[in-house]
Write a protein that binds this DNA or RNA. Structure first.
Ligand SMILES: [Zn+2]
Ligand SMILES: [Zn+2]
Ligand SMILES: [Zn+2]
Ligand SMILES: [Zn+2]
Lengths: 142, 142
DNA sequence: CTTGAACCTATAGTTGCTGTAGCTCTTATC
DNA sequence: GATAAGAGCTACAGCAACTATAGGTTCAAG
């Protein structure tokens, strides 16, 4: 039997985060002591490790919910798990592409600034006027 | 004189977002009609375009606040603007590196799954056990 | 003068936590 | 058995940066 603090330490999770996962139904309601403190078993430890590792790989909690559900039903077809992972891969690829475009714009504007006053600053000029950019689109803010 | 809707259309911003920027002090409180509706000038349009373009380049609102302030004081030295941009570049580079690491883990686990039941799924196996990963760290969740 | 689009405020929800206040419980030591 | 530290408890507020909704008012065209 583990306390919430032990689970936290063993998985690198904040205690509040574990309670949050319980609140949104990702972690089960564990047993309690007479005094009302949570006590977990090894199954819970594994489940939390699964959640945390999935988060480290960037999966959103809703995807993790589905992945846990599949993991809980070993006889089901794994197609759903694979398609969630592929969706996540596409998401990561999209973000990389967007960030690479941002990187070149940033490099360019930094490289072009020769210092001086704000009125002469190339960085500020570019920010004022998107037509100074090479890319003709960098939507999808974030 | 422009309505808030015109500003929104011309800059690709939601109307609520403009009001939000006003609330947090990024956009000035504009003049109002007798009936209480906001009316903007061209200066406001330019300011909003600056904000939106900066957001598209990934700058956080607090950085944009400083950039706007510099842009409003043309005689100041531009060093601060450049260092904000360089910080943003470093941030983007960090994120790219992290996402590239995630991409290879995802590619690998997807590539290794041969289908079948959830109990045999390579994707789920890797999620259960980080030691199946090549990287020995992928912290910094998000 | 009517209609309907666009505006207004205020508030709640999004994602995934994190931090705080003000308690209570557990456990080790004496 | 008493005490005190550390860990746990609930409940709520806050972060970033919006987005959505409800329920009402104003503007401008016809
Ligand atoms: Zn400069
Ligand atoms: Zn641009
Ligand atoms: Zn599979
Ligand atoms: Zn891993």
């Amino acid at each position: 039997m583990h306390t919430i603090g032990t689970l936290a330490r063993r998985t690198g999770t904040k205690v509040q985060t574990i309670r949050y996962y319980e609140q949104i139904g990702l972690m089960p309601e564990p047993g309690r002591t007479e005094g009302g403190q949570r006590r977990y078993g090894d199954v819970d430890l594994d489940r939390l490790a699964f959640i945390r590792h999935s988060r480290q790989l960037g999966f959103p909690l809703e995807a993790i919910r589905e992945l846990l559900d599949l993991s809980d039903h070993p006889a089901r077809d794994c197609g759903a798990a694979d398609s969630i992972a592929r969706r996540q891969l596409r998401e990561v690829e999209t973000r990389i592409a967007r960030l690479q475009a941002l990187r070149s714009e940033l490099e360019r504007m930094i490289g072009e600034c020769r210092g001086g006053t704000a009125s002469e600053c190339r960085v500020l000029e570019v920010l004022r006027d998107h037509s100074e950019c090479l890319a003709d689109d960098h939507d999808a803010i974030g």
